[in-house]
Write a protein that binds this DNA or RNA. Structure first.
Length: 804
DNA sequence: AGCACGCCGACT
DNA sequence: GTCGGCGTGCTC
């Protein structure tokens, strides 16, 4: 039998199927969708079996070396999905398949140099002998880094046949093991009990425990449950009453937490109206995409939960995507509470091993629901009954590296394969999605009231220019300051939002206007107070804060703009005694830090929660009655056509944190452009008006949803090279596409240099361009040689989300 | 990716 | 005349 294999070599030249014979002893095991190890050129690589065949056109075909899986890791559906992904994201096949699997299933490669025969050690050059005196295998990387000059000698020894290059493919998979004990013979336990002497009271207790629970139990649990000690257990093992074994277990990241089970809540009339059509498609096994446009606090989650219950009742599975779980622990909690151990959780905070274990639970069918971030859309279920994408508009659903897919598109693909509903939920849908819903491509379901008649918070907008005029130079307006003071005295909590981490946004010389910039990127450096360093948020470069201006030597070098660190400092100055929790990338880097900070806030250990983007989502604390946005325009003026949309979405979302329960909420938004519609319409809670307004802007500028866009970005350490290549690509695009397509550029990317690489781009705006895929593939093909060498990079992004 | 093959310049 | 630079092409 012949198998066709995609090999783990992500280049243009190898982006196809290779034929391999299956040796007789592997014939009974091999299946489509399994990982295999195959010889490829001089080495061995991992690959995926895509299809089988009885014959091959080739004369010489090698045999597969090993099968890595017992059951296929990719189902037929996922293999098909991978093919679709290859085209829609313009990536290599291998890249598409690997994106679907947890990192633990990706192979690791190692090259070793082996001494063929210890007796022939004298045949290798003298300088090399020390390495092989006490061992016959040497790690190539280790050797190479120590002795560059000896490489030719190694080569010669290999060609002489004394040494041999060995390529090892290692499966990264690790299973967590735990030591367990179980009775040697269950039936014999009571017999053993009688034979023990009276002095062995402790041992008797353990045996009695096993009579009650005669299954294997981890030693640590046994000590706790039977109130015994290691010594006692050991004695019983020596007497052959118990046996010790190693058992493979799943690492359960939520193991130490218990979840109180909840029952479905009674639905409000509006919720019933919304869930009705969803139930309908579930019952009729129809594919349909729904957009639930529901204001914050309107009870979308309960809709999700009850739809999933229905699906589980049909013996089917559910995928729930959330923007970033570590940011929304409350969401996970609600799923765990409702479905208990039927839920697997996949998010970036888990270790490689933990992710793999969660993946395995999905793969072997022991869970029915997965709640996860973007990549969970590839969960290897075999009978999906519903897919839900919460906060549908979030940028995290778009992967910004290859394969550059949008989870929403993948979800549509999978849901239509399984004839099941896809639900998109958001208080502020992306324009693309809402436009499709209005056109009837998606079915629109609206929930424009909060449950239990909780009113939406009142939003007040403060013009910071007026504040300045009236002599207030602090970062808090009078209104916000008064309200903050008021909350503290009443014992209620506030949330302060600022979209900038660090201390100051930039450092400038007051005499000459010099701004400290990253030497590797075209971006200004941010001062971090705690470390007293200037940091680049793009490449991680850091340097000491200069005492004098490096351009004119003046001492008048100052901080401008405020980051979260500076706000924190300011609060302690103007509101002494206020307890503040700051949440940004810098305070939440450590594992579990997120939850810790949020728990502390929930327990009332702080009056003010100050943070960046990450506090905008999912927080639901009854005691928050005030939300303050310090600088609403910070994202408004970014060079991105979605800047207004993002501002509106973010402000609406942050506002939604206030007054979600009994206490009414208030929001104060500080801005320098109060008249801008994306700020003003937040005050009125009017998404529809915002949609109409923004749509007219997009129409005028030929942007999505009226046009699709694709960006071809070129980067290289030399600016002349970048410009030259981008120009050639630009004219090629103009030449190849229809005259209805608009090709813009080449222009420098908004951040023209990152990590010492210059970046230029062309933007294509189009409505219907059937040849686009072929044209883009041709670009890749043309520059294959140079991109493979690594100096030139061409990235093609269909439907980019962040234009930076 | 990794490696072999092969064609030009600077050495014994 | 040979050694070795890295451009080019191939891997079932």
């Amino acid at each position: 039998m012949i198998v066709k294999v995609v090999v783990d070599v992500p280049t243009g030249g190898t982006d196809r199927l290779f034929d391999y014979k299956v040796p007789v002893h592997l014939l009974p095991m091999i299946e489509i969708g399994m990982r295999v190890i195959v010889p490829f050129g001089p080495r061995k690589v991992q690959g995926f079996v895509i299809s089988t065949s009885e014959e091959t056109e080739l004369e010489t075909v090698k045999e597969i070396a090993e099968i890595l899986d017992v059951t296929p890791v990719l189902t037929d559906e996922l293999l098909q999905l991978g093919e679709w992904l290859t085209n829609s994201a313009i990536c290599f096949k291998i890249t598409a398949y690997q994106a679907m699997l947890p990192a633990a299933l990706r192979a690791k490669y190692k090259k070793e140099i082996k001494l063929v025969d210890q007796n022939r050690i004298l045949e290798i050059p003298e300088e090399l002998r020390v390495w092989f005196e006490h061992r016959d295998v040497v790690d190539w990387e280790e050797f190479k880094s120590n002795h560059v000059n000896l490489l030719p000698l190694i080569k010669r020894a290999i060609s002489m046949g004394v040494l041999e290059a060995v390529y090892v493919v290692k499966d990264k998979v690790t299973y967590k093991k735990v030591k367990v004990v179980e009775p040697f013979c269950r039936e014999d336990l009571s017999n053993q009990l009688m034979h023990l002497g009276n002095r062995a009271a402790k041992q008797k207790e353990v045996i009695e425990y096993f009579i009650k629970f005669p299954t294997a139990v981890p030693i640590t649990d046994l000590i706790e449950q039977a109130e015994t000690t290691r010594g006692t257990i050991k004695a019983l093992i020596e007497k052959n009453v118990l046996v010790e074994k190693e058992l493979e277990i799943s690492r359960d990241p939520y193991a130490n937490r218990s979840f109180k089970r909840t029952n479905p809540l009674p639905l409000t009339r509006n919720q019933k109206k919304v869930i009705e059509p969803i139930y309908h498609t579930i019952e009729n096994q129809k594919h349909e995409t729904f957009l639930i446009h529901g204001v914050t606090g309107s009870g979308k989650t309960e809709i999700y939960l009850q739809s999933i219950s229905k699906v589980i009742g049909q013996e089917k599975e559910a995928i729930v995507l959330v923007p970033e779980i570590s940011l929304t622990p409350q969401m996970v909690q609600r799923f765990k509470e409702r479905f208990g151990s039927l839920v697997a959780v996949l998010h970036s905070g888990l270790s490689v091993g933990e992710k793999y274990d969660e993946w395995r639970k999905i793969h072997n069918g022991s869970v029915k629901v997965v709640v996860g971030a973007r990549s969970a859309v590839f969960a290897p279920f075999k009978n999906i009954g519903i897919i839900i994408i919460d906060e549908e508009h979030e940028a995290t659903y778009k992967q910004e590296e290859n394969p550059r897919y949008h989870a929403r598109d993948v979800a549509i693909q999978r849901a239509s394969y399984y004839n099941c509903p896809l639900i998109l939920g958001s208080a502020t849908p992306s324009l693309e999605t809402y436009a499709r819903a209005k056109k009837g491509v998606y079915k629109l379901l609206s929930m424009l009231e909060r449950v239990n008649d909780v009113t939406l918070p009142t939003v007040e907008i403060v013009d910071m220019r007026e504040e300045l005029k009236s002599g207030n130079r602090s970062m808090f307006s009078k209104l916000l300051f008064d309200k903050l003071t008021d909350r503290i005295s009443r014992g209620e909590q506030s949330v302060l939002f600022l979209n900038r981490r660090g201390y100051s946004t930039f450092v400038m010389c007051r005499d000459c206007g010099y701004v400290a910039e990253c030497p590797h990127c075209d971006i200004s450096l941010t001062y971090h107070q705690t470390s007293r360093l200037l940091k680049c948020h793009y490449c991680g470069h850091q340097e000491n804060m200069p005492k004098t201006c490096s351009s004119c030597n003046s001492e008048h070098i100052r901080f401008f703009g405020s980051g979260t660190q500076k706000v924190e400092e300011e609060i302690t100055k103007v509101l002494p005694g206020a307890r503040v929790i700051r949440m940004d990338v810098d305070t939440t880097r450590k594992k579990g830090a997120h939850e810790k900070l949020l728990t502390a806030f929930a327990q009332g250990k702080a009056d003010i929660l100050l943070g960046t983007q990450m506090i905008a989502k999912g927080l639901d604390f009854p005691n928050i009655t005030l939300v303050g946005v310090l600088a609403a325009d910070s994202m408004l003026h970014l060079p991105d056509f979605r800047a207004s949309e993002r501002t509106f979405q973010l402000l609406t979302q942050v506002s939604g944190r206030a007054g979600r329960h009994k206490l009414p909420g208030e929001v104060v938004i500080q801005t320098y452009t109060p008249e801008h519609y994306s700020i003003d319409l937040v005050r009125q809670h009017d998404y529809i008006a915002f949609f109409e307004r923004e749509m007219s802007v997009r129409k005028l500028q030929n942007y999505p949803p009226y046009y699709f866009i694709t960006i071809v970005q070129v980067s290289h350490p030399e600016i002349t090279k970048v410009i030259e290549v981008t120009e050639r690509i630009g004219s090629f695009l103009r030449r190849s596409l229809s005259d209805k397509a608009i090709v813009l550029g080449p222009v420098a990317s908004p951040i023209a240099r990152i990590k010492d690489r210059y970046r230029y781009q062309c933007m294509i705006k189009y409505k219907n361009e059937p040849t686009l895929l072929a044209v883009l593939k041709e670009i890749n093909e043309n520059y294959k040689r140079e991109t493979q060498q690594g100096t030139l990079q061409i990235s093609i992004d269909k439907n980019p989300f962040v234009l930076m």
